[in-house]
C-alpha cells in the first residue's frame, strides 16, 4: 500500500475543523487558545450554525480570533463584548451569538458588562479564557492572578494585601438568576478537551433554546507569560491553578 492509497476519505481519523482557515496563528506554542478555537469551530459546524453565528472578539491575545474562524465577527472594545453580544442577540433573536474573552477583559475592565449581561439572562455564550495573566500586553497581573504569582506588574508576586484576591468570577456568575450553565474546563489532556467540547456544545444549545446565559471558563496556560515550556505550563496549571479554580460544573439548570 503506497502513501496515496492511505490518504483517502475513508481512512480519515482527524482533520482540521471546516470553519478554521489557513491564516497563520499568532498564538504561542503551548497556548490554550488554539485548542479552544478549534472546539468552538467544531461545535458551530456540527450544530449547522455556521451561517447564523456572530462571534464577539475581545481585546487581549484573542483579539485576532476573527482571523481564524470563518464566521462573521465583531471586534469589541476592551471588556465590552457582553454589551455588544446583548444588542446583537436582542436585535437578531434567531442568531447564535457568543463572546470570547480573557480574564482581564471579562473579570477586570468588563466586570460590569459581564455581570449585567448574565443577570439579564441574555441568550448568549461567554467563552472565558482564564490564564491568570495579561498575555497580549506582555504578562501583567490579571484579576485571576494567583496569590504570590509573579507577573510584570507584581514582580515580587501578587500580594493580596496590596492587590486584592484572585477573582473567582465564575463562582460569582453562578449565583445570578440569569445564568443557566456555568462550567470550568481545561484543554490540557485529551479527556479534558472532550469534556470541554461537550460543555461548549451544551452552552451553544442553551443559547439557541433561549435558556439564558452560559459561561464556559477554560482554565488555560500562557507558557510565554508564565515563562515556562508548554509542558511545564500544563504541569504548573494542574498544580497551582486547579486548586483555586477547580474544574467541573458550577451550575447547570
Amino acid at each position: 500500500m503506497n502513501m496515496q492509497e492511505i490518504i483517502s476519505p475513508e481512512n480519515v481519523v482527524y482533520q482540521k475543523p471546516r470553519l478554521m482557515n489557513d491564516h497563520p496563528m499568532h498564538y504561542c506554542p503551548g497556548c490554550s487558545h488554539g485548542v479552544v478555537h478549534k472546539l468552538i469551530a467544531e461545535v458551530i459546524d456540527e450544530m449547522g450554525l455556521a451561517e447564523q453565528t456572530i462571534g464577539i472578539a475581545p481585546v487581549g491575545c484573542a483579539v485576532f480570533a476573527y482571523n481564524y474562524l470563518d464566521i462573521d465577527w465583531i471586534e469589541a472594545a476592551h471588556g465590552r463584548a457582553p454589551a455588544i453580544a446583548t444588542a446583537v442577540k436582542r436585535l437578531n433573536p434567531g442568531k447564535m451569538v457568543f463572546t470570547y474573552q480573557g480574564d482581564g477583559d471579562l473579570a477586570a475592565i468588563g466586570t460590569a458588562e459581564t455581570i449585567h449581561a448574565c443577570n439579564r439572562g441574555e441568550n448568549v455564550v461567554i467563552v472565558f479564557i482564564n490564564n491568570a495573566i495579561y498575555g497580549m500586553t506582555g504578562g501583567q497581573m490579571a484579576p485571576t492572578t494567583l496569590d504570590g504569582m509573579k507577573t510584570a506588574t507584581c514582580p515580587y508576586g501578587r500580594n493580596v494585601s496590596l492587590n486584592g484576591y484572585p477573582l473567582k468570577i465564575s463562582d460569582l456568575l453562578a449565583q445570578l438568576e440569569g445564568t443557566c450553565l456555568i462550567t470550568r474546563e481545561a484543554v490540557h489532556t485529551a479527556a479534558a478537551i472532550r469534556r470541554g467540547k461537550k460543555a461548549l456544545r451544551k452552552a451553544f444549545e442553551n443559547a439557541m433554546a433561549g435558556k439564558g446565559s452560559s459561561v464556559v471558563e477554560f482554565v488555560s496556560t500562557c507558557a510565554s507569560g508564565w515563562k515556562m515550556t508548554p509542558e511545564q505550563a500544563n504541569q504548573w496549571m494542574v498544580e497551582n491553578m486547579f486548586p483555586l479554580y477547580p474544574l467541573g460544573t458550577l451550575k447547570d439548570k
Binding site: I56, I74, A77, R80, T86, A87, V88, A112
Partner: peptide, 14 residues
C-alpha cells in the same frame, strides 16, 4: 452609558 454605547456599536455592526 458605557454598556449602552457598546450595545449601539453591536447593533450597528449588524
Amino acid at each position: 452609558e458605557v454598556a449602552a454605547i457598546n450595545m449601539v456599536y453591536g447593533g450597528a455592526a449588524c
